[in-house]
Amino acid sequence: MPRGVGRGAEPPSEEISEGPRLWVRLALLLPFTAILALFFTVPLVLMAVISLSRQSFARFEWALTFKNYVRFFSDPFYVGVLWDTLWLGFLVTAAALLLGYPLAYHLARTRTRWKPVLLVFILSPLLVGIVIRCYGWMILLADRGLINGTLIEGGWISRPLPLMYNQFGVGLALVHVFLPFMVLSLTGVIKRIDPALLEASMTLGASPARAFWEVTLPLSLPGILAGSLLVFSLAISSFVVPILLGGFKVYVLPIIVYEQILSVFDWPFGAANAFILLLISLGIITGYIKVAERALRGLV
């Protein structure tokens, strides 16, 4: 964006540092780039090649065919699983946003000296190992678990509520662990919104709710964007939680990939599955960024 240089514009600062020299910057980038190239890009390319190969009678053959992809999209089961995976990702993201926003707002605005403690509370799901966390939820959610057990004992219900081995249980456990990513993404952005902006909108006649809608929410969009992308991509690639709390009744693409590669030994089809998930989530993320950017620019 060109900066206004109308009357009274401040002269540009002359102390803009040019930063380190080019070769220093390249040298600093090299280690990470090398690791990424060696252990990420190469396997990814390999996987792409494998996904175009053929498996016949449990024997792997190099080839160049789109058969695996055709098979995926012509089988309603796999398309259904893809849809379920994306839908689960959407639900988890939406829930994390709705639950996380008030939390993040409070964390950004509070002046209590207990703020570090609040932060630890918010990060606490990440401090517990994934398997332990899942078994914790199982104790709570199982048919004879704490919640159902108590409700049945108390005579409020006769049959256990379906809390686990379904999308609800998986979603709940995913929201629990991904909430910190959403909250932290939002907190930083909300903290930078000048409270005077809200006051200004109120003196101009906006009710508190309207001021939130017109000022706070649009200005927190970068945080909503970052948090949603994080949570969505983590949720659709999650594997352990859907297995433990879904009990193979909730199928998501990562489980299919796992089964194809480690149980069925159909590497090409497994690789194709993984690639489809990758490409579709990339597509969704790109679309989301585009829409959000437009919203950030216009906003009326």
């Binding site: 005077a196 902006l197 909108s201 109120m202 003196t203 101009l204 508190p208």
Partner: peptide, 25 residues
């Protein structure tokens, strides 16, 4: 009365212009 029903105009120390809106908006 809450601020939004008092019909006062206020100019803040650091202007508090809405950064996501144009001058006209």
């Amino acid at each position: 009365l809450p601020p939004h029903r008092r019909r006062v105009g206020m100019v803040f120390q650091h202007y508090a212009l809405f950064p996501h809106r144009t001058v006209a908006q």
